[in-house]
């Protein structure tokens, strides 16, 4: 493919019938889309189904994408909405999925980080889906409030409110972790913001 192409160019190529362009787009963004889905749903199989369904919808609906947001924002919107829909449909199943080891990084570097990941996953599972999605996007994935508002299709004030309510609910569940907040966490937020600023 030579020069790396922008997301918008790849999407236009896909709409024009290029059979490989969409797969390349997916390769670029799948880890972040996966992290959002897994953290929002808390279940590996459900997350896989949600991401697959969402990407197939995006593949087919690409022609109606108007370019009024970044391609990544649009892909996140499709995936997050698929996840929130799934949580809402879980009427007959336990509302709090048990976090499994799938939540974890494949190669956790310290025991403390594993503990954090499990605690965070369990705590997130107690939140209503709208609050969970907002916190995953803003606090965990590093999207700005305005970007998260675009992804979830609500006003920025609504994102702020959902994040605030979510944090208040998480407080009693996560307070024990804040005795040893890692500096790695701060660096990770900064890195994610840098990454997203570059796309």
């Amino acid at each position: 493919m030579g020069e790396p192409q922008t997301d918008a160019v790849l999407l236009a190529a896909h709409v024009a019938g290029d059979p490989d362009a969409f797969a390349e787009l997916v390769r670029r963004h799948r880890d972040r889309l996966w992290a959002v889905a897994l953290r929002t749903l808390g279940d590996r199989e459900e997350a896989a189904d949600a991401v697959q369904d969402a990407l197939i919808s995006a593949y087919r609906a690409a022609g109606s994408f108007r370019g009024d947001s970044a391609v990544t924002t649009w892909l996140h919107r499709v995936v997050v909405n698929a996840c929130v829909d799934r949580i809402r449909r879980r009427t007959s199943r336990p509302t709090v999925p048990l976090p499994s080891e799938d939540i974890l990084d494949p190669v956790p570097d310290t025991a403390g980080r594993v503990e954090t990941a499990l605690d965070v996953a369990a705590a997130l599972a107690t939140l209503p889906p709208e609050q969970r999605a907002a916190l995953v996007l803003v606090d965990m994935q590093g999207w700005s409030v305005e970007e998260a508002a675009g992804i979830l299709g609500v006003a920025p004030g609504t994102i702020k409110s959902r994040c605030a309510r979510g944090r208040a609910k998480l407080l009693p569940l996560l307070r024990h972790l804040r005795n040893h907040p890692t500096s790695a966490g701060v660096a990770s937020v900064q890195q994610q913001r840098d990454l997203q600023g570059g796309t």
Binding site: V26, R30, A117, L174
Partner: peptide, 30 residues
Amino acid sequence: DLRDIPTLLAAAPSPRMPDDVAMRIDAALQ
């Protein structure tokens, strides 16, 4: 403590898409 919650959330390691899920999605798109 509330101000620290975003930091705690960001400190959780970010999972990467497992290979089997990536392959399954590639196949579905193909």
